[in-house]
């Protein structure tokens, strides 16, 4: 569980996050959604400790990240897996080395044990036989899956995903969404996904936080979001023609 208590983040004069408080639940896929510029990525980077909020606290279980010393923060980071927007795989390493990287850095396992674990997670994300390939030699969807494998190889307690579907076709995007949700339930971890993709919201939104101009304006799940009267949310949800049609059908049925 991650608890966010009234965090504020400024860049110069501009206040990006204006006092956000919420809870991200364990064993659920928690989504942060909102339009571009709403503060989603800044919030994610605050959660990760890459940005320090000027005010407010972020609790991992019972302990605030701001009250942790450097060693405690390093220990916490070993419990975090992260899926970056572009995958962020290391170009100079092959797939096997990329996935093995957290194990090499943080464990004292033998190489054969690490290889077994790498093959196990690669098979979990349905990627086999690509161990010796380099990131540039595989597709974008495969890179995302390798990135998920790297994120979960060290059995993290927390999984963060920044726009996991960007640049992917709808079918591959659904595969990635389902994989994230399955992993969340299977390993009972706290997953936080930043997205503005409505398909992801529908597929995996078990706890959705909606941001607008750095303010949390709505929170609910993927059923509630289609029934809310919050104007900001409905503007965002029904901005595409497809969802407008769905809305019309829903209203007629009512």
């Amino acid at each position: 569980m991650i608890k966010v208590d009234n965090i504020k983040k400024r860049f110069g004069e501009e206040e990006i996050l204006k006092g956000i408080s919420t809870v991200f639940h364990k064993g659920k896929t928690n989504l942060i959604i909102g339009q571009s510029g709403s503060g989603k990525t800044v919030m994610l980077k605050c959660l990760l400790g890459l940005f320090k909020p000027e005010e407010g606290l972020i609790y991992y279980e019972e302990k605030a990240i701001q009250h942790m010393n450097e060693e405690q923060q390093r220990d916490l980071r070993e419990e975090i897996g992260m899926l970056f927007q572009g995958g962020a795989l290391f170009d100079s390493m092959n797939i096997e080395e990329n996935v093995m990287f957290p194990l090499r850095m943080f464990t004292k396992q033998k190489k054969s044990e690490m290889l077994d674990r790498v093959n196990e997670v690669l098979s979990r994300v349905n990627l086999e036989g690509v161990n010796k390939k380099y990131p540039a030699e595989i597709s974008g969807g495969m890179q995302k899956r390798v990135s998920i494998a790297r994120a979960i190889v060290n059995r993290p307690k927390y999984l963060f995903c920044d726009e996991p579907n960007s640049g992917l076709d709808p079918k591959t995007a659904t595969v990635i969404d389902n994989l994230i949700q399955e992993i969340t339930h299977e390993f009972d971890i706290t997953t936080v996904v930043v997205t503005h993709d409505m398909n992801s919201v529908m597929e995996i939104g078990e706890n959705i936080v909606f941001l607008k101009n750095g303010v949390l304006v709505w929170q609910g799940n993927n059923t509630d979001i289609f029934n809310t009267d919050n104007v900001d949310v409905t503007d965002f949800v029904y901005s595409s023609d497809l969802f407008k049609k769905i809305r019309e059908i829903q209203l007629k049925e009512r």
Partner: peptide, 17 residues
């Protein structure tokens, strides 16, 4: 610089390296 642009440096930092 390429590692910075492609978030590879962020990936290292997030891992606690």
């Amino acid at each position: 610089g390429s590692m910075r642009v492609t978030e590879q440096i962020d990936a290292l930092e997030v891992m606690g390296i």
